[in-house]
């Protein structure tokens, strides 16, 4: 066991528990906080994958902006815990978990198990660096990049339209 493995195990455990927390927490604020932790740990998982730029972007975009928005909305609307509660005896609970288990076992047997021996190549200098991402973003992926910017613009307009007070 080296440091890297320990780090991975810790991070993935944190991520998984935080993920469970998102689903199981009664109060939306706690769900949101769990999600923050989840995303933070995913960001650090990115770091372990040597995707520094993506990790920091993950923190900036998800943790710094999106989750703050979530918290803001939850607080602004003062959403309490599910008044009706999460029905433990909800008819959908059991089938949903069943489906999840089925899918997990199916994929892990069919996909994850064969991939277990996958080699871990030594990354080049500059893998995941801002230069590499920038270069491919502005050369090969410039069209999707522009489309994404338009999408963001549309998103802004849509959000303003949806959220503004009716006159």
């Amino acid at each position: 066991m080296q440091g890297r493995e320990i780090l991975f195990i810790v991070l993935s455990l944190v991520a998984c528990f935080a993920g469970l927390g998102v689903v199981l927490a009664k109060h939306p604020i706690k769900s949101a906080l769990s999600l923050v932790v989840n995303m933070f740990s995913i960001a650090f998982l990115y770091f372990t994958l040597e995707a520094n730029m993506l990790g920091i972007t993950q923190i900036m975009v998800y943790v710094g902006a999106i989750m703050v928005l979530f918290l803001f909305v939850v607080m602004l609307l003062n959403i309490g815990s599910d008044r009706s509660g999460m029905k433990i005896l909800d008819l959908k609970l059991v089938p949903a978990i069943l489906i999840a288990l089925l899918m997990f076992s199916l994929i892990s047997f069919q996909v994850l198990y064969p991939l277990f021996g996958m080699q871990y190549p030594v990354a080049d200098e500059g893998f995941g660096s801002p230069e590499a991402i920038g270069k491919s973003l502005f050369s090969q992926y410039v069209l999707p990049f522009e489309v994404a910017s338009v999408l963001l613009l549309v998103g802004i307009v849509g959000a303003i339209l949806l959220a503004r007070r009716k006159a």
């Binding site: 993935s12 995913i42 372990t48 997990f104 994929i107 996909v111």
Partner: peptide, 17 residues
């Protein structure tokens, strides 16, 4: 760390969601 480890974390989170 095998690739499957990352993928299983990913799969777990996905299914939890």
């Amino acid at each position: 760390i095998p690739l499957s480890a990352y993928l299983s974390v990913s799969l777990f989170l996905f299914l939890t969601g």
